[in-house]
Lab assay of single mutants.
Amino acid sequence: NITNLCPFDEVFNATRFASVYAWNRKRISNCVADYSVLYNLAPFFTFKCYGVSPTKLNDLCFTNVYADSFVIRGDEVRQIAPGQTGNIADYNYKLPDDFTGCVIAWNSNKLDSKVSGNYNYLYRLFRKSNLKPFERDISTEIYQAGNKPCNGVAGFNCYFPLRSYSFRPTYGVGHQPYRVVVLSFELLHAPATVCGPKKST
């Protein structure tokens, strides 16, 4: 009989979030998941669920729940959905087409922007091929755009693959930082360890 609440607040209220290319994953298990708490945590810009209804979450049980978190800019949030393409979905964080879970995003301009520009958040701009779903690539190998090998040196047709967002508070919403948490629900042929409040007794 599990009584402890799932530590969603640790994920959502973390002081620092990860850069999207090096997104963070927390496995959540053996706890009571009260998803209604999430609705009250922040004024969400996005709370979209796929393959599951957000209002039914509190009635369900899962084997595992994974919470992935990272920062992107406002106009990239739409890429965090099944079947999307674009720089983020292709080279940084890719959801599977049959994704079961929820994408939660909110504006973090007050936390993640600086007047002089916050350069701490990076994204991958160049990659030889698209990522597979939930693949994480943290390599910093020089990207070869031409025929000549780069031998690890940046220059003509040889690019450092990561680029930094420079978040400034005066930017338009599309270029402001957004914190994203992706909850993916895993149903294996194994005992369910993460249940809503109704199912945990």
Rank of each mutant, 00 (worst) to 15 (best):
residue 2 I to M: 13
residue 3 T to D: 08
residue 4 N to D: 12
residue 4 N to F: 07
residue 8 F to I: 07
residue 8 F to Q: 03
residue 8 F to N: 02
residue 9 D to K: 11
residue 12 F to K: 01
residue 14 A to F: 03
residue 16 R to N: 13
residue 16 R to F: 09
residue 19 S to F: 01
residue 20 V to I: 04
residue 21 Y to A: 05
residue 21 Y to D: 05
residue 22 A to L: 05
residue 26 K to G: 02
residue 28 I to N: 01
residue 29 S to V: 08
residue 31 C to A: 06
residue 33 A to T: 08
residue 34 D to V: 03
residue 35 Y to G: 07
residue 35 Y to T: 08
residue 36 S to I: 03
residue 37 V to K: 13
residue 40 N to I: 05
residue 40 N to C: 06
residue 43 P to L: 05
residue 45 F to C: 14
residue 46 T to I: 11
residue 47 F to V: 15
residue 47 F to K: 07
residue 48 K to P: 00
residue 48 K to A: 07
residue 49 C to V: 00
residue 50 Y to G: 00
residue 52 V to S: 03
residue 53 S to P: 10
residue 53 S to A: 12
residue 55 T to D: 13
residue 57 L to N: 05
residue 57 L to R: 04
residue 58 N to G: 12
residue 60 L to N: 08
residue 61 C to L: 07
residue 62 F to C: 09
residue 63 T to G: 10
residue 65 V to N: 02
residue 67 A to N: 06
residue 67 A to E: 02
residue 69 S to E: 03
residue 70 F to H: 02
residue 72 I to Q: 01
residue 72 I to A: 03
residue 75 D to Q: 08
residue 75 D to M: 07
residue 76 E to S: 02
residue 76 E to C: 01
residue 77 V to S: 02
residue 77 V to Y: 03
residue 77 V to A: 04
residue 77 V to E: 03
residue 77 V to F: 02
residue 78 R to S: 15
residue 78 R to G: 12
residue 81 A to R: 05
residue 82 P to Y: 00
residue 83 G to H: 11
residue 83 G to W: 01
residue 85 T to S: 13
residue 85 T to N: 10
residue 86 G to P: 02
residue 87 N to C: 10
residue 87 N to R: 12
residue 88 I to A: 04
residue 88 I to R: 01
residue 89 A to G: 04
residue 90 D to P: 02
residue 91 Y to P: 03
residue 93 Y to G: 01
residue 93 Y to W: 03
residue 93 Y to D: 02
residue 94 K to H: 07
residue 98 D to N: 14
residue 100 T to M: 14
residue 102 C to N: 00
residue 102 C to M: 00
residue 103 V to W: 00
residue 105 A to N: 03
residue 106 W to N: 04
residue 106 W to M: 06
residue 107 N to A: 06
residue 107 N to G: 04
residue 108 S to A: 10
residue 113 S to E: 06
residue 113 S to W: 06
residue 115 V to G: 15
residue 116 S to E: 14
residue 117 G to N: 12
residue 118 N to W: 04
residue 119 Y to R: 15
residue 120 N to C: 08
residue 125 L to Y: 15
residue 128 K to V: 09
residue 129 S to D: 14
residue 133 P to F: 02
residue 134 F to C: 08
residue 134 F to G: 13
residue 136 R to Y: 02
residue 138 I to R: 08
residue 140 T to N: 11
residue 140 T to C: 09
residue 140 T to Y: 08
residue 141 E to Q: 11
residue 143 Y to N: 07
residue 146 G to Y: 04
residue 147 N to V: 12
residue 147 N to G: 12
residue 147 N to W: 09
residue 148 K to Q: 14
residue 148 K to E: 14
residue 151 N to F: 11
residue 152 G to W: 05
residue 152 G to V: 06
residue 153 V to L: 11
residue 154 A to K: 13
residue 155 G to L: 05
residue 156 F to Y: 14
residue 156 F to A: 15
residue 157 N to A: 11
residue 157 N to F: 08
residue 159 Y to S: 14
residue 159 Y to G: 08
residue 160 F to T: 12
residue 160 F to Y: 14
residue 161 P to V: 02
residue 162 L to S: 04
residue 162 L to P: 03
residue 164 S to P: 13
residue 165 Y to G: 06
residue 169 P to T: 09
residue 173 V to G: 10
residue 173 V to Q: 14
residue 174 G to L: 13
residue 174 G to E: 14
residue 174 G to N: 15
residue 176 Q to R: 03
residue 177 P to Y: 04
residue 178 Y to G: 01
residue 179 R to V: 04
residue 180 V to Y: 01
residue 182 V to G: 00
residue 182 V to H: 00
residue 182 V to D: 00
residue 184 S to N: 12
residue 186 E to Q: 10
residue 186 E to R: 07
residue 186 E to I: 00
residue 189 H to I: 09
residue 191 P to R: 12
residue 191 P to K: 13
residue 192 A to S: 13
residue 195 C to A: 08
residue 195 C to Q: 08
residue 196 G to A: 11
residue 196 G to F: 10
residue 197 P to W: 15
residue 198 K to R: 14
residue 198 K to W: 11
residue 199 K to S: 15
residue 200 S to G: 14
residue 201 T to F: 14
